[in-house]
Computed example of a mutant assay.
Amino acid sequence: MRGHRTTRTAALLCAALGLTAAVGTASAAPSASPPTARPGASPVLVDCLWHPKVRPAAFILACGDGNSRLASLKWDHWNATSAKATGVNVVNDCEPYCAAGTFHAYPVVVRLDKAQPWKKDPGTQRYDRIVLEYPAQRPEQFAKVMTYPLWD
């Protein structure tokens, strides 16, 4: 009986030491978060998870439920004062309600401007405003041009 306890105790100790080593190694590893822009670099677009992005191919506008997002973004320019892209705004019509709704894609021109220091990293400039312009069809409740502040 004593030998069984000793073996079990040794196994538990090895498992605990292995877990401690793995946790120590993981916490000592460098962060996997994307690097922030250098001072003087072009501004960033901050996403829903507070990650800085430069020229993203996609961007979620409705962070809470994902019912409006930008996709297939092709950037014409991205500089210290503004950025411009074309793509599609994929919007849920929420008919009869959002969980049962249908997503529709609308061509859109995206403009970013009003670069400001980012509260999370004041050395990084981030775009503060997004303007969506619908050159053709648009969601029923949307104007031809929609302007939104961006989160900080």
Rank of each mutant, 00 (worst) to 15 (best):
R2C: 10
G3H: 12
R5K: 10
R8V: 15
L12G: 00
L13S: 07
L17W: 02
L19G: 04
A21W: 07
A21S: 07
G24I: 03
G24Y: 05
T25H: 11
T25A: 15
T25M: 10
A26Q: 08
A26I: 11
S27H: 15
A28V: 03
P30N: 09
S31W: 00
P34M: 05
P34V: 10
P35A: 06
A37R: 03
R38E: 07
P39N: 04
S42Y: 08
L45S: 01
V46S: 00
C48F: 01
C48P: 01
C48L: 02
C48K: 02
L49A: 14
W50Y: 08
W50C: 07
H51F: 07
H51Y: 11
H51I: 05
H51G: 09
V54A: 01
V54C: 00
P56T: 05
A58Y: 04
I60V: 15
L61M: 13
A62V: 10
A62L: 01
C63K: 04
G64N: 04
D65C: 07
G66C: 08
G66V: 09
R69Q: 14
L70P: 01
L70H: 00
L70T: 01
A71K: 13
A71V: 15
A71C: 07
S72Q: 04
L73A: 03
H77W: 11
N79L: 08
A80I: 06
S82D: 14
K84H: 12
G87W: 02
V88F: 04
N89S: 10
V90G: 05
V91K: 00
V91F: 01
D93H: 14
C94Y: 06
P96E: 13
P96D: 11
A99W: 13
A100M: 15
T102Y: 10
F103N: 15
A105W: 05
V108F: 06
V109M: 02
V109W: 01
R111P: 06
R111D: 10
D113W: 01
D113T: 02
K114D: 11
K114L: 09
Q116I: 11
P117D: 04
P117S: 06
P117W: 03
P117H: 03
W118G: 00
D121I: 03
Q125Y: 02
D128S: 15
D128L: 09
R129G: 03
I130V: 12
I130E: 06
V131L: 06
E133D: 09
E133H: 14
A136P: 07
Q137G: 15
R138H: 09
R138A: 12
R138I: 10
R138N: 03
Q141P: 09
F142Y: 11
F142G: 00
A143P: 13
K144I: 07
K144G: 11
V145N: 11
V145Q: 15
V145I: 15
Y148E: 07
P149L: 10
P149D: 14
P149C: 11
P149V: 09
W151E: 10
D152H: 10
D152I: 06
